[in-house]
Design a protein around this nucleic acid. Structure first.
Lengths: 154, 154
DNA sequence: AAATTGTATACCTGGTTAGTATTGAATGCG
DNA sequence: CGCATTCAATACTAACCAGGTATACAATTT
């Protein structure tokens, strides 16, 4: 699995569209329309995005939502975390781990390292970058180079 | 979230211990003991690991489980996939996507690129590598360098 | 003030996951 | 040959959580 929840997925999709419109505003029902998502669901997602200050909302006639920053400055990590909370691959990685085994587990202090790398990949991928990904092999530049160290060839 | 299920987590932990023992065999109740996991749960996990051919089982007196390959040749990706099936960040990334929106979604062909990178990180991290991760900053070497291309600084 | 648009809360429900129990089959040993 | 040991397979239950929905409320513009 290694899943990102559907709501978070929706969040990214919505941010993507807001990015394309920026700096224009988009009303909630317009968002529902262009994303083909049910309106009540959009409502829920928008709340998360506003709370996380990724989008700015304006009420009243001609109100709507606007991406708070240029798409190149919004990371997937932020987007996902906005909807689902902190990015933790396992319980071990959470701030307050609730894992029964935690203190007797050989891996409790190893997972965070793996988690950190995965998170960094997502942190360094922006909404704008997303546009460049095809279904084809992704190509990625040097900024991530120094992240990779204990990882070996298999 | 971006979660790995608990069973998969257990699976990795078990593989880790089997790796430390290799090539010795370990009976199921011994595994339960050293991992501090309930035995019925271990049973379930072992089935997945055997089916995936990551461990070899032997029955009868002095039977038990043995890691099929050296720990350096077992990736986290395999381990997780053994328990949870294909690694797909979102529905879009699955072989047969069941997403309602899929064909009308702007991102349907973009997620797989992100997915591929995350998966590659996990593919290039072996059980042996796991031992080297501390709670501290992880360092990762060049093999992942060329993966990173459309990712920009934020 | 009225229309438009976002905000907040609370609830339901269905599916997945984790955990368990039971019965069966293979292997090795004396 | 048969008994002890150990894994294998199936099916069930229970809890939780994500996703989805409904409804009533508040703010802003004109």
């Amino acid at each position: 699995m290694l899943k990102v929840g559907r709501l978070a997925d929706y969040g990214v999709l919505i941010l993507h569209h807001l990015g394309r419109m920026r700096p224009a505003r988009l009303a909630m029902d317009s968002i529902a329309e262009i994303t083909h998502l049910p309106l009540p669901t959009v409502r829920k997602v928008m709340k998360y995005l506003v709370d996380a200050e990724l989008v700015i909302s304006k009420r009243g006639p001609n109100g709507g939502y606007q991406l708070a920053r240029p798409p190149a400055q919004v990371s997937l990590a932020e987007a996902i975390a906005a909807v689902e909370g902190p990015l933790t691959l396992t319980e071990c990685c959470a701030a307050r781990s609730t894992c029964e085994i935690h203190d007797r587990c050989d891996l409790a202090d190893r997972w965070p390292g793996v988690n950190a790398i995965v998170v960094k990949v997502l942190e360094r991928t922006s909404l704008a970058d997303l546009d460049r990904f095809g279904r084809h092999e992704p190509h990625v530049p040097p900024p991530l180079r120094e992240l990779m160290a204990p990882i070996r060839h298999l």
